[in-house]
């Protein structure tokens, strides 16, 4: 049983962090990144009406969305959204020189990591699943209103939405824990973030054993609609969805454990001391 005062502490920390992520100076970029796909689908399909080609099949439509999801939403939008949200959980407080207020509160540092991470996870999951769900609906609707109805009545549309949102959640879980740690470890976290971005992008070119050293490998394993990676792609060992989920959970636990270790050792010196 968790003591009442700890629940109160967690509640306060969670509310404070959620406010910082969703509102104010950090909130606007978060919302812009999260809803980029919605803007993209609105612009491309509703304004320019690009895909409304007569005779296009639902299966083609699903494959088209799956490709956009993997290439654009998962690899770029979610990736950079997680970079922004999770790296800033501690980094922004360090830059603002306000992290010491947390360190000087009667709250264990590991509890700080957990509270901030969960605030980031819940906020990111809410934003990116909402954005993905709207994107799916817009995509179907852009094709035709009938396609949208058909998507839910004949194509198990609800299940597809849930599957995509689950991938988004697991993406937030994995990338989030990784970027939280990077934000704690590097003074300039942009360089490692860009390197990781490239690493995730070239995943399809990597030999099988290296593919496993990435988050995208496990996320792709859960894709409801497979996407061809082109002639240059090297074959990967298939992994089942349950194993991928367990793998990502273990990965995020390991990253959080490292973050706890790092923050317990952390010395706070923003600058000149007397």
């Amino acid at each position: 049983m968790i003591p009442k005062h700890m629940v109160q502490q967690f509640k306060a920390l969670f509310q404070l962090e959620t406010r910082k992520i969703l509102w104010g100076r950090r909130g606007l970029p978060t919302l812009l990144i999260a809803f980029l796909p919605v803007g993209f689908f609105l612009l491309v399909f509703l304004v320019f009406n690009v895909i409304s080609k007569p005779g296009m099949q639902q299966s083609e439509l699903l494959t088209a969305f799956a490709t956009i999801f993997q290439v654009f939403i998962l690899r770029s939008v979610l990736f950079f959204g997680a970079v922004w949200i999770f790296m800033n959980l501690f980094r922004a407080d360090m830059l603002d020189k306000s992290l010491h207020y947390f360190f000087l509160s009667p709250i264990r540092r590991e509890w700080l990591v957990v509270g901030k991470y969960l605030a980031g996870l819940v906020s990111a999951t809410l934003l990116f699943t909402l954005s993905t769900t709207i994107s799916i609906l817009l995509f179907q609707f852009a094709f035709s209103f009938e396609a949208l109805i058909q998507f839910f009545t004949q194509q198990q549309g609800f299940l597809l939405v849930v599957q995509y949102d689950l991938i988004i959640f697991l993406g937030c879980l994995g990338y989030g824990s990784l970027f939280l740690l990077i934000g704690l470890m590097f003074r300039n976290a942009i360089v490692p973030a860009v390197l990781l971005y490239l690493w995730e992008w070239i995943n399809f070119l990597l030999p099988s054993f290296l593919k496993k050293v990435s988050v995208i490998y496990y996320l792709k394993a859960m894709a409801p609609v497979p996407v061809a990676e082109g002639p240059l792609a090297l074959a990967a060992d298939p992994i089942s969805a349950p194993k991928a989920i367990i793998g990502l959970i273990l990965f995020s636990l390991a990253m959080n454990a490292l973050a706890v270790w790092k923050i317990r050792k952390m010395e706070l010196q923003y600058g000149k001391e007397n």
């Binding site: 009442k4 005062h5 700890m6 109160q8 502490q9 207020y101 947390f102 509160s105 009667p106």
Partner: peptide, 10 residues
């Protein structure tokens, strides 16, 4: 107020 909340007070 916010940092008092982190003391676990009501």
């Amino acid at each position: 107020y916010t940092f008092l909340q982190l003391h676990g007070l009501t």
